[in-house]
Design a protein around this nucleic acid. Sequence first.
DNA 1: ACCCATGTGTTACTATATAGCCTCACTATA
DNA 2: TATAGTGAGGCTATATAGTAACACATGGGT
Lengths: 168, 168
Amino acid sequence: MPQKLLAFHRHNHTHCVSSALAEAQELCNERGARLTPLRRQVLELIWQSHIPLGAYALMDQLAELTTRRVAPPTVYRALDFLLEQGLVHRIHGLNAFIGCPTPGEHHQSEFLLCRDCGVAKEIDSEELSQAIRIVAEADGFLVENNSVEVTGLCPNCRPKDDAPHERA
Amino acid sequence: MPQKLLAFHRHNHTHCVSSALAEAQELCNERGARLTPLRRQVLELIWQSHIPLGAYALMDQLAELTTRRVAPPTVYRALDFLLEQGLVHRIHGLNAFIGCPTPGEHHQSEFLLCRDCGVAKEIDSEELSQAIRIVAEADGFLVENNSVEVTGLCPNCRPKDDAPHERA
DNA sequence: ACCCATGTGTTACTATATAGCCTCACTATA
DNA sequence: TATAGTGAGGCTATATAGTAACACATGGGT
Ligand SMILES: [Zn+2]
Ligand SMILES: [Zn+2]
Ligand SMILES: [Zn+2]
Ligand SMILES: [Zn+2]
């Protein structure tokens, strides 16, 4: 299983980062898009964890790294580029951004968000997208884009109440 | 069919408003919650159409109606109350609020959003919620709340390309 | 050399949301 | 009746998120 789909489990995250960056570079090359140093750096910062990162947090980290002041437009422009290229997704409910583990393929923005540890896991379920399409079409609605943000507790943070039998 | 589920179709919207307000009052009575004049007025303003309304737009309208200055906390507190009572939903992708046509029942926040006319229609599909639960459970994720915002074109705004046969 | 397109720096600003404090009205006791 | 508690809402200020507009730089084509 690809590391990048293991957000909720212990995994070699260094591999997530390096493969995300490599894939991004490759995609941009194919498309003639320019993954500039700034854009790459922003992407790398977003991939530092599986927890969505806000634009201003990103800005601060960037400022520390470059030891220069970084203004909002700088980071928002980089984010816009990454969003256009499908390399990151925006999590509206958190005003934050998260790296896409499967860029390149057109897909929707569908996430499980743990309210305790903050980790976001992208879900890519044909059944789910299908269910949405069916509901929409029943209303004569033409779907262009969907955003699913499911909040709850990830396997690490949910109570282990499977066997609460008070065994002495 | 209840008026309030006809967002995309011509309907007697006055009835949406009056029944929403009546239902809200009833629910609040049952629960011992206080639907104060301000809260009622905010709810009524939100129900003025099926287009989600931003907090600041709401504020301005409220200020005009009362001919007094209205500060953000006033409207946000009313909105918080209405959200808690499940009388309105927040549309994160638009930073806006919309009346709930079926308050009382516990349900998720799932919407079709027309990017052209702006109308939002709440969808209440057990299949969709089910699909989400299944996907989440496959990851060991405990769902607490889900937010689905499907963007596209409503039946009125989508191109009528069903029979584009260029008949003279 | 020049032009042009694209990316980034910079300032200023708009938009959205919250913190904290005060007063008022209502209610529950003493 | 006094009085303390509670919750709603007015108010100022502030925090957080996102954008507009202009200046400058680079790099490629002519
Ligand atoms: Zn990882
Ligand atoms: Zn993705
Ligand atoms: Zn209506
Ligand atoms: Zn609802």
